[in-house]
């Protein structure tokens, strides 16, 4: 029973991270009908930015509120910029071309980033993983028995950050001018353009927003795993994509639910069987969902997609 509770806590902790990344997939799909496979790798770039900032702040000694704030804000801003550049120079020139072209371009960008970052020259970090500094010094907040159930401070902090980010996004999408413009573009880009909405700017904004959320998620992931590496983007990105599809791609709460579900499934599989089964079960679940409910769990509620 205590194992179950512990797995539940861990699962929610990793699920919120998948959810944050999945939001980026879902938003971009919402406005462009494009699956941005480079999303995970943009996230990885953000993580390395956060890593660089944390290192320059003093590595493992950077554990302070201001330090965390600085690491997150620089990584999120930098990652937003990367997302913007990817859209501006990677996808925008292909806007009027068949969608397949942009899709394949996104895979190309994904590989360029994840393998480019394995080179060991200049600012590129090389293939080996780097230990992520303990910017949130880990300690137990809550312990039951002899480590039967433990809740860590970083789990609570990352959960809180993730929830704030999601609520912020919800507010932005439904309560602001930019959000309204986003929803309009998502509904019909051409008409939105005719109504005086700067479509290109909205699309750029969507990429910046999605990438910043991804950077935030990536940092939380790096804190959890105590490492960053060039291939993390492919891995986390693929999982988040699955989460987005399970929830119904294009649907914001769906991505969150999908992420949480996937995080829980993985944790329980690792906890009760072996970690080798984790990916098989996660992707198996995707297939089951697609067979039973091809539009994803929340896919039908298309009234307001983002």
């Amino acid at each position: 029973m205590s194992d179950f509770a512990q797995h539940l806590i861990n699962g929610i902790a990793s699920g919120t991270i998948y959810a944050l990344v999945a939001l980026g997939y879902t938003m971009v799909y919402g406005v462009l009908k494009l699956i941005n496979f480079a999303h995970g790798d943009v996230m990885m770039v953000g993580c390395y930015m956060g890593y660089a900032v944390a290192q320059s702040l003093g590595g493992d000694d950077a554990s302070s509120f201001l330090g965390v704030l600085l690491v997150f804000s620089v990584a999120m801003a930098g990652c937003g910029l990367v997302g913007f550049l990817v859209e501006r120079f990677g996808y925008r020139p292909l806007r009027e071309k068949p969608r397949l072209t942009a899709l394949i371009t996104s895979i190309g960008i994904s590989f360029t980033l994840s393998y480019g970052f394995q080179l060991d020259m200049g600012f590129l970090p090389g293939a080996a993983p780097r230990a992520f500094p303990e910017i949130i010094r880990p300690h137990e907040l809550f312990v039951v028995g002899d480590y039967d159930i433990v809740i860590w401070n970083w789990q609570v902090i990352s959960f809180a950050i993730a929830i704030v980010m999601m609520l912020g996004l919800q507010f932005l999408v439904y309560r602001t001018r930019f959000g309204r413009a986003m929803r309009a573009v998502s509904f019909d880009p051409k008409t939105a353009g005719l109504m005086g909405i700067a479509t290109d700017r909205v699309i750029s904004g969507t990429f910046i927003l999605g990438s910043s959320l991804a950077a935030c998620a990536g940092l939380l992931y790096a804190i959890k795993d105590t490492a960053v590496q060039p291939m993390m983007g492919l891995y986390v990105g693929l999982k988040a994509f699955v989460a987005a599809v399970i929830g119904g791609i294009g649907h914001v709460p769906g991505a969150v639910v999908g992420g949480l579900l996937l995080g829980l499934i993985e944790e329980f599989v690792v906890g009760y069987t072996a970690s080798t089964w984790r990916d098989a079960v996660a992707f198996g679940f995707l297939i089951v969902v697609l067979l039973g409910r091809p539009e994803g769990l929340f896919g039908k509620a298309v009234a307001e997609k983002v």
């Binding site: 009908k33 494009l34 068949p98 969608r99 942009a102 899709l103 119904g248 091809p294 896919g299």
Partner: peptide, 27 residues
Amino acid sequence: MSALRLISDSLKSNRPKGAGSRPLVLC
């Protein structure tokens, strides 16, 4: 938005009329 249409949407500019099993296989 249907997850089933996901890939076929990405492949074609115009939306597919129906969702058969082909897009699923593709996906």
